[in-house]
Amino acid sequence: MYVAGIDIGSIYSKAIILKDNQVVGSLVKRTGGEIKVASQKLIEEVLMPLGLQAADLRAAVATGYGRISVPFAQKQVTEISCFGRGIGHLFPYVRTVIDIGGQDSKGIKIDDQGSVDDFVMNDKCAAGTGRFLEVMANALEVKLEDMGLLALLSNSPEEIGITCTVFAESQVISLVAKGRPKVDIIAGIHQAIAERIVSMVKMIRIEERIAITGGGAKNIGLVRELEKKLGSKVIVPEEPQLIGAYGAALFAQDLARNE
């Protein structure tokens, strides 16, 4: 019995295929163009090595901001529930999930089943999200995937104000113009993002243990900075970006079983 979890995020789309509880396929692709078409391509591509087609799936659940535009999904579940479910399944002792996605970051409190007790999200502002890091990487002419490691090299991080992505970008550009070391600027950016995320997540009273998910969890500099501010070691799953799709696939499995 094959089921699929599809997570259409603002920057990346993710897919997980489960067969009898086991992950047999996964894929991360940049979300581009029309979501309906993009999600079709995504599912075709992830199923191709398995010799399957969308019609062979017993169930599919869609999540992410594009969840309502996935034509082959029987159900939509919010990414808040999906990240909770995915982490709860892998790490049943985790009580707080911090998800750093492309356009939003969230704090999610879960019980031992991965079911959501409470949550908080950033409001309509990209500061403190993946997109913010992307903008800064561009402004600094540094690869996004190198940002985290570079942040760890600094001994005297710059003070960066990040109430607004656009203003932060011009601040970064002026610091570069003044000849400040890039690593210090990058470290400052990471500190500011971590500060913002932690103060938001504190609104739901953080309980240990804490897991970090989403594309932002792949950034080692950000993870270390979050640990400092949280005063606690965090759990980063092997594929943090795929947790939402994994949770969606678990919901799809429920659907298939209840049929």
Binding site: Y65, V77, T78, E79, I80, S81, D104, V116, D117, D118, F119, M121, D123, K124
Partner: peptide, 13 residues
């Protein structure tokens, strides 16, 4: 989108 996700997550809760 931002408002819908909050409300839907609330309904799931």
């Amino acid at each position: 989108g931002q408002i819908q996700i909050r409300l839907e997550a609330f309904f799931e809760r």
